[in-house]
């Protein structure tokens, strides 16, 4: 059994994958075609792993958690930003085109340079936040309040989908601004004035054109566009409290 066969169930069909290929030193990029068996629960990541194991071991792609928590398997599938691990191949048509994320330099094949993404974040980005889930629950002795990881999984989908980032590499982009807004919502020791100074820049919160493509692309319900609007609200009014953005 292979990852793709395994989830095929009874109705396996063959799909044509067109996969973006580039190795350092190549004169240019190309699409390689692969015929892949796909069943009703085969994900795009399963299919790419099947290609790696059975057709071309040199295909490079990023993956880690397989459940939309690590954010490594971001890619463009038929022109849309998705996490391959939670995107079913079956509904995508007979030809499925897989490309690396846009607006981030490609290292090889489907692998982009995530350093380009992290460079844009404010220094103090948080990884853990107060948990707002199950508000009626009282934590046990010794724990002041339940906490959980931030929703942002640093996948880069919003940056890839952003039409402004496509035209301006200097724009810090939606993920970084959303992280800044989260720090204002819940500073956890970070100085809000520093975050506001960082965001109050022509290439910061003011560069966004409010296309909301980032919110559309986000696989983790962060709602970056709404957070950028909330940041602007603070900057424009001078009121130093940021509007809270709740998951949709």
């Amino acid at each position: 059994m292979s990852p793709a066969d395994a989830r095929s169930g009874s109705s396996t069909a063959t799909r044509r994958f067109r996969v973006y290929r580039y190795k350092r030193g190549d004169p240019g990029w190309r699409f390689d075609p692969f015929e892949v068996p796909v069943g009703p629960s085969t994900t795009v990541l399963d299919a790419l792993r099947w290609i790696q194991l059975h057709r071309d071991r040199s295909l490079a792609l990023r993956h880690s958690c397989f459940h939309a928590s690590c954010g490594t398997c971001g890619m463009q599938v038929n022109g849309r930003e998705v996490l391959g691990c939670v995107t079913l191949a079956d509904p995508l048509g007979s030809t499925i085109t897989v490309e690396p994320l846009a607006n981030i330099p490609v290292l090889t094949d489907l692998v982009v340079d995530m350093g380009h993404v992290f460079d844009r974040f404010p220094d103090e980005i948080g990884t853990v936040r107060m948990s707002e889930e199950l508000p009626q629950a009282s934590p046990p002795d010794g724990i002041d309040a339940y906490e959980r990881f931030e929703d942002c999984i640093e996948c880069g989908l919003c940056l890839s989908a952003c039409p402004v980032s496509a035209t301006s590499d200097a724009y810090v982009g939606p993920a970084a601004l959303a992280a800044a807004q989260r720090l204002l919502e819940e500073p956890r020791g970070v100085d809000p004035e520093r975050i506001l100074d960082w965001a109050d820049d022509p290439m910061g919160a003011w560069r966004c054109h409010a296309a909301f493509e980032c919110t559309e692309a986000c696989p983790s319900n962060v709602r970056p566009a709404e957070r950028i609007m909330a940041l602007r609200g603070v900057l424009a009014t001078g009121h130093r409290t940021v509007a809270t953005v709740k998951p949709a």
């Binding site: 059994m1 292979s2 990852p3 194991l53 939309a68 928590s69 889930e133 959980r148 990881f149 983790s220």
Partner: peptide, 20 residues
């Protein structure tokens, strides 16, 4: 995060690349 992960089962295989 905003997920709940339920685990897990257990069996043995020959090849760790071929996981169903």
């Amino acid at each position: 995060r905003a997920l709940s992960v339920v685990g897990t089962s257990s069996w043995t295989v020959e090849d760790p690349d071929e996981l169903d």
